[in-house]
Each structure stands twice: as structure tokens, then as C-alpha cells.
Design a protein around this nucleic acid. Structure first.
Lengths: 153, 153
DNA sequence: CACATTTAAATTGTGCGCAACTCGATTGCG
DNA sequence: CGCAATCGAGTTGCGCACAATTTAAATGTG
């Protein structure tokens, strides 16, 4: 795995590769967004809204702070998003009594029921990627490493 | 590569994997955005603006349509973005004489000069990813396949 | 030639992402 | 205790992404 075992990579190619990776990531993220848009249209959810619902379905009622930490989103993004979920009657806000700064988000019955309708979504997305399980694992591993490296940089 | 050569993957794990991949992609894309924001701050460019400048630096004057095809962006995104690049005096619009519908984007001298200042950006990004060349190649290959699969889906 | 269709760009409206800020509650330190 | 610092949520402002629509120009067909 040392550089001596392979011919050196020219600078220009290296820089080009970097551009391509960043661009590919950008493009892939938007491509996913497009397919999700389709898959979630019937549920009336956007992809970020779906992510929030996933958190609530899996972990139950959560303070805004906790949702933000799980999804790496701040209040500037979450506050209006949650407001829209509330207008859609999928979610309820409740200010905490112990700590009046904190607001806990609860699923409404409608929000809980939506879970059933959302069940086929991941399988549909999985099929749309066209990757094998192993490739998906590899992809996720690489993405995870990139993200934590970038986050510390 | 048939499923008989390995133990079957449980449904639940499969669905979870899908969620994780989509989420990782979303997170990685935003993480890249954050580091680019830093790297491009001195240039006064956002990442999408930088992508447009890269196209112009590499391929010269281009109609809006051609830029959009290279970056998979439509006029709804490009028109205001190009307007901002124009206000920054990096770019000039010129309506085509042969086809009056088309607008060609040219670099101004300032836009051309900015290329020099942008040279160290890709190396900085490359270092920030923390991946080896081979991993980058693998990542890009997977992302490219996912994107084209999703685009046809 | 006349008229329908297509095309390129721009515009409008909605939602996400993030920086910067405000407001009120809580915590911590002298 | 009192006051500064911190914290959670919300708000504002800007830019990107995308759907839908508009406008003007070009193309194609009868």
C-alpha cells in the first residue's frame, strides 16, 4: 500500500480527481433528492422532513436539540421545517417544564400512522441506486470517513 | 456474486443500510460544502459559483445552456447565480446574434485572473478528505454509478 | 406563407442550509 | 446572592435547487 508499489500520480490528475469527486458527490446528492422527491410525493414530505420523521418513528419524542444533533441540522433549518410538519398535523410541539428553553417534538396520531405509508420507500430507493449490498457498504464507509475528516478540518 | 455464496441479508438491515447511505450522502455533501465555504471565502465565491467558474476556466466562453448541461443545473438556478457573478464583475453576458434566444457567458479579465487565486483550492480540499487516491477513485466510481442509475430511475 | 411546436433564458414561489442575531432561561463563578 | 456567560429555540437574510410559468425566438409542418 506504499506509494513505491505504484507509479506516482501526476499532480494534474490528482487535482482533477478531487474536482470530480466533489462534483460527483454534489451530483449524487441531488440525484438522490430527485428520486426521493418522487418517492415521498404521495406522503407530502420532502427528504429533510422525511429524515426528521424517521428520527421520531425510531426514537420517539425528542427535543429539537436532539433531532438536530442526529441530523446535523441547526435551529435555523429545523424551526421552520418543524413548523411545516406541525401545520401538516404530523407533529406537535411542547415546551418542556423542567427546562423552559427546550421544546420537545411529539408525533401526532397522523404522524404515527404515516409510518405505514412510508414503509415501501427505502426498498424503492435501494432498487433505484443499482448497487449491490457490498457496494453500498463500501460507499457508506467511504462517505462516513470523508464526512468525519471534513468535519474536523 | 450470486446470493447463494453468502448468507442472506435480513430485510431490516437492508432497509437500515439504505437509510444510512442516503443520510451519509446528504451529510457528506454538506460537509464538503462547509469546507469549500472556507476555502472559497477569500475568493468571494460559493461552491456552485466556483463550479461555474471552473467550467469557464477550462472550456472558455459558454452559452448558459452548455454550462447547465455540464453541471446539471437549470436556468432557474443559473440565471440568478450568473447575475451575481456578473455583479461581482467576474463574468459578462452577451446575447448571441445568430440565435437571439441564447446568452453566452464570457469571463472578464478579473474572472480570468481569479483562476490564479483558485489554484490552491483543490489541493486543500483533497487533503481535507483524508482519503487515499485509490479510495477517492473507488468513491467517485460508486457515486458515478449511483447517479446515473438514479437519473434513469 | 401561416400557425403550432419547440427551445433558451428568465421569473416566481417554495423549501433547505447556514451564518448572524435576538430573546428568554439556565448555569456558573466571584 | 448577583451578574456574566452559556444555552435552546426562533428569526432574518442570503444563496442554491427545483417545479411551474412566461416571453421571445427559432423551427417545423401543412
Amino acid at each position: 500500500m506504499t506509494s513505491a508499489t505504484r507509479p506516482p500520480v501526476p499532480d494534474a490528475e490528482l487535482l482533477r480527481l478531487d474536482h470530480q469527486v466533489c462534483f460527483s458527490l454534489h451530483a449524487a446528492s441531488r440525484a438522490f433528492g430527485g428520486v426521493y422527491r418522487d418517492a415521498l410525493k404521495d406522503l407530502g414530505l420532502t427528504y429533510p422532513q422525511y429524515l426528521v420523521m424517521l428520527v421520531l418513528w425510531e426514537h420517539g419524542s425528542q427535543p429539537v436539540k436532539a433531532i438536530g444533533e442526529r441530523l446535523r441540522l441547526d435551529s435555523g433549518t429545523l424551526s421552520p421545517l418543524l413548523k411545516r410538519l406541525e401545520s401538516a398535523a404530523l407533529v406537535r410541539r411542547e415546551r418542556s417544564t423542567e427546562d423552559e428553553r427546550s421544546v420537545t417534538i411529539h408525533l401526532t396520531p397522523a404522524g404515527d400512522e404515516l409510518r405505514e405509508a412510508a414503509l415501501p420507500v427505502p426498498r424503492r430507493m435501494l432498487a433505484a441506486t443499482g448497487l449491490t449490498i457490498e457496494e453500498l457498504r463500501t460507499l457508506q464507509g467511504l462517505l462516513g470517513r470523508v464526512t468525519s475528516a471534513l468535519d474536523t478540518a
